[in-house]
Design a protein around this nucleic acid. Structure first.
Lengths: 256, 256
DNA sequence: ATATATCAGTTATCATACAACTTATGAAGG
DNA sequence: CCTTCATAAGTTGTATGATAACTGATATAT
């Protein structure tokens, strides 16, 4: 009996193949994982308000029946929803939809996802927003030791000279430092996030566009302008200098 | 051999209780889920570079043995790592560590997480960065229909009068529209994200601080200033107007 | 009335089996 | 020697059943 029930239920289910085929009718993008389907469905229910914050999700057993998948799949889906902070599960009680902003939530930026039309340029633009303002805040909040570190980074940068790798690192470090000067952990971390999103793009662009001679000096000038504005504590000027710097960089990288 | 190993492994396992006790020695925060332990361990290995991008994780079987947990737990852990974009799993092959910026990655902001000292103020500040620049971009890119919509939102806002709920909604809508005018999906979505992070805070603050009379008119004036700058296509002015507006709002909300 | 015990329902974990896929190895044929 | 194809071993994906741990409510005893 064990055997037959397994067999029959097995065949009653949508076979993985058919589901996969269905998905792959549109671009390959989605791996053929059943939990993805469940996630999308549940997300939809929640975002459309059909399940509303605070209310309980159907039990795993119910979900297996309504989706015709195994409990394994349901659990994986719920687990991922939970790690996104959309639900919390309480053992013995159930899974509950969290109210927005309760707990930790995640911001996703898909650079490859064909669903998304977000381009590297978009992200770079967002970076300009954040970083130019960060420079402004830095000008208001910089301490003495902060300035010393920034100055040191500037020197490292100019000392790098022809060494590309070294130059890039010093550059990154300079910007990272400015983010830290804001003393705002949200800004610091988001800056880090954007930078890491862009590393590949930047590296690629940098490799393609031959470095003009004198470029490093030029960049150094821009950096100095930013630095001086921060030293002077002039937020407006710091923002402007940073914006100019990043705009030029954007051009140089061919992101415009 | 199978049999004995089964039995013994069962008893050899850390019982859930003991694990839970261990965790709960520090604040309650962590639910006693084994997959969390696995996730933390793997994250650590990856971030410390012990597993390096591109390389393969140990197979699920190996992991079950080294962690002494069931495959279910391992799979949940991996599934969540995958949904965070830290790894990709290829059926029949293995689970591979993604290189940073490959695929989609997530930015998390924990408002409650005791590990994080991110405050609502930090987030609001980040919002100011993004939104003031968004206003600038909006001024450069607004189309005709865009302006019409924006104007309509303004009218709705002033028409709301005393109705608080209505007023808030119109306000949110106004800002949302401006984000959309940038035509930058990264900015649009990040703005949405920040707004949703702040909803609770804003709602609370609004409830606490009694609304001064004449406040709505005052806010309306600020909105008009932003609107006019966008209409004029003056990016610098739009940025400034938005920044002023949000700074004032921040004060009013007691986030300063 | 208050506490306690019990029970049904739910999530968490374990174990096993099988399906589907990947990769390497090696045999067969050119 | 090289290519091609089959096979086998290893790996992830899914299904299923069983048990542990927890929750909430109901019933019971004091």
């Amino acid at each position: 009996m064990d055997d037959e029930s397994r067999q029959s239920s097995q065949s009653r289910l949508l076979s993985r193949r058919s589901v996969a085929a269905k998905i792959k009718s549109k671009p390959i993008v989605r791996p053929d994982r059943l939990s993805d389907l469940v996630i999308d469905a549940l997300r939809n229910d929640m975002e459309s308000g059909r399940i509303g914050p605070g209310s309980r999700l159907p039990s795993e057993k119910d979900l297996t029946e309504s989706f015709n998948v195994s409990r394994t799949v349901i659990r994986e889906a719920i687990s991922r929803l939970q790690s996104d902070g959309l639900v919390v599960s309480r053992q013995g009680s159930g899974v509950y939809v969290t109210s927005p902003s309760e707990g930790t939530r995640a911001f996703r930026l898909g650079l490859n996802d064909p669903h998304e039309k977000t381009t590297a340029r978009d992200i770079y633009e967002l970076r300009i927003c954040v970083e130019s303002d960060a420079a402004g805040l830095a000008a208001l909040r910089r301490g003495k030791t902060d300035l010393a570190m920034l100055e040191k980074a500037l020197k490292t940068l100019s000392a790098a000279g022809g060494d590309l790798e070294k130059g890039v690192n010093a550059d990154v470090q300079f910007h990272r430092l400015i983010a830290r000067l804001t003393k705002n952990s949200a800004i610091i971390r988001f800056h880090e996030f954007l930078a890491s999103m862009l590393t590949d793009t930047v590296r690629l662009a940098r490799a393609n566009s031959a470095m003009h001679e004198g470029l490093t000096e030029y960049v150094a000038t821009e950096h100095v302008a930013i630095f001086e504005a921060i030293v002077a504590g002039d937020a407006e000027k710091a923002r402007h200098a940073m914006r100019m710097h990043l705009n030029k960089a954007q051009e140089r990288l061919g992101l415009l």
